[in-house]
Nucleic acid binder design. Structure first.
Lengths: 146, 146
DNA sequence: ACCGGTAACTCTCCAACGGGAAGTACGCAC
DNA sequence: GTGCGTACTTCCCGTTGGAGAGTTACCGGT
């Protein structure tokens, strides 16, 4: 009989979540969401368009597996499935199977996933808007070191 | 009715970065910053304490190499050096060598790096605050699938 | 009855990336 | 000379991710 239940362990750890500690669960969560495919999946399901300033249609969408794999150009099926599974397990999105033929599987952000998406959208927009500056910095750096 | 040629569309698309396209530079930038070590390095140099609500001392810090490697528990020297180099190349932080003995190397966020840190801090805080919820979701998921 | 088509995976192989440990360069103190 | 401390750098090897073929399950056509 275990003396300490999982719930008790959580209650204990709750006092001190610190992502800088390698053993902290929040560190693993940070590693999980700091993933290129995670950020793109969130952006896709969050309804981010390519050009953030223009379309205001950034409400959560429900997307099919095949739709996602087309949207995230370059993702392998393995990684897409794997990443979606872990996000589902963590409660960031829901997976719905509709028994049509062939079977239809749709994914949708939960409220929890949506709250993370609100943050991650900013990061994606940052990358797109500061691209020029970063490219200029790289040129300067490469010129300096050659 | 304005006529838009294919050439004009291409020229237009060239100006706009879209992280969903595999070939877009901003996609590579998003992949670079969606990295566990990048987010932790930014948090460390941005002055994030373990408990975000408590200490207000979240102004940019200058940190030594050894200080960073102690702070980011579990990082290998190789990855720390490599990650710092690319962040320096992209202009997110500066590397300063002081010819003391032994040599002292300090790293500090640039304004550009600081602007990204403002966004990433939210993500780290999100991970720490929603940890309980995610752990509960995992238990439910595992119970459902076993 | 059989074949083909489609969606969503799943499996298998292999190349690339990341971690660990050991080695390097520098200058000074002894 | 030998040793030491900082900040790397190099080598080896285990793990991860990508490419692409294979799988399942169903149905509609012939």
């Amino acid at each position: 009989m275990p003396m300490v239940t999982a719930a008790q362990q959580r209650a204990q750890a709750k006092l001190e979540y610190d992502a800088f500690l390698a053993s902290c669960p929040s560190r693993q969560l940070l590693e999980r969401i700091s993933d290129k495919w995670v950020s793109l999946i969130l952006a896709a399901l969050g309804g981010d368009g390519p050009h953030p300033g223009k379309d205001r249609a950034d409400r959560p969408r429900s997307m099919r597996y095949s739709e996602l794999s087309r949207r995230l150009a370059g993702v392998s099926q393995k990684m897409l499935t794997q990443t979606l599974r872990t996000l589902e397990r963590d409660g960031l999105l829901t997976r719905t199977v509709t028994p049509t033929v062939p079977v239809t599987v749709t994914y949708e952000l939960t409220d929890l996933g949506g709250s993370l998406h609100d943050l991650m959208r900013g990061v994606k927009v940052w990358a797109e808007t500061h691209m020029d500056e970063v490219l200029a910095n790289r040129e300067k750096y490469d010129a300096r070191t050659t």
